[in-house]
């Protein structure tokens, strides 16, 4: 692979240009130059973007070894690891932001993962698919079957999403755990910001995803 050393960063730039809309929103929440850990970072598109456009010290953890290899081969500091077991190794307050995008519903111990996130970082940015969306409710009500949508697209017996929750549920969790919600947004299925900012009830009905910025109370 003679030209690999030069080709890799270009590939990352290309990836960043076509980055998921919700990741672009997340990037907009991060202050330039911040220390960031992206948990479940996939191919590292967000951390590549944060380094190159905002000068962040951005790193990633990813469970899937094929994605890890791809990210490292693109010059990104990513390690193979598991949110459920590996966050405990980080020291307190090692980061300014820890990002968990569309992964919370798939971890084994969501409460423990959130606690670890807010131990090792000042702020946690969490996004998750909203199980309270009207279309899911309608499917369950009318068909009596587990809903299937773009975000919830695997049968109940094979889905990795073992802890679905709604935007309202997440607000409740933040109260119970004493987290301060600094910002929150509801997103549509493309990841664009949905106009339900002031009305959690409507956001819970019409938002495809919830995006929260938390800190400890």
């Amino acid at each position: 692979m003679p030209d690999g050393a030069e080709r890799a960063p270009d590939a990352v730039r290309d990836a960043a240009r076509g980055m998921r809309v919700d990741l672009q929103l997340i990037a907009g929440l991060v202050t330039p130059g911040a220390r960031v850990l992206d948990i479940g970072c996939g191919d590292g598109a967000l951390i590549g973007h944060l380094f190159r456009t905002q000068g962040c010290d951005a790193r990633g953890i990813e469970l899937d070894m094929a994605l890890v290899t791809r990210a490292v081969a693109h010059g990104l500091p990513v390690m193979q690891g598991d949110a459920d077991t590996d966050l405990v190794h980080y020291p307190d307050q090692a980061f300014d932001y820890v990002v968990l995008s569309r992964t919370l519903q798939a971890v084994e111990h969501p409460l423990a993962v959130l606690r670890q996130m807010l131990r090792i970082s000042t702020r946690a940015i969490v996004s998750f698919p909203n199980f309270g969306h009207w279309y899911l409710r309608a499917q369950l009500l009318l068909k009596g079957r587990m809903p299937m949508t773009k975000s919830w697209n695997r049968m109940w017996y094979e889905t990795p999403n073992i802890h679905p929750c709604t935007i309202q549920d997440f607000f409740d969790l933040c109260v119970a755990e004493g987290y301060v919600v600094e910002q929150w947004l509801a997103l549509d299925d493309e990841g664009h910001r949905a106009p339900w900012r002031r009305f959690p009830y409507l956001a819970n009905l019409f938002g495809e995803q919830g995006l929260f910025v938390l800190r400890r109370g």
């Binding site: 690999g4 890890v68 290899t69 490292v72 081969a73 193979q80």
Partner: peptide, 30 residues
């Protein structure tokens, strides 16, 4: 940190393992 899938044992680091070589090239480039 990457674990490269290989059935060649410890010797793999001396052999032509494309994923390994991509990893090293990419890390160095980064």
């Amino acid at each position: 940190f990457v674990e490269i899938a290989s059935d060649k044992g410890h010797d793999a680091f001396l052999l032509d393992e494309p994923d390994f070589h991509r990893t090293i090239a990419g890390f160095i480039a980064g």
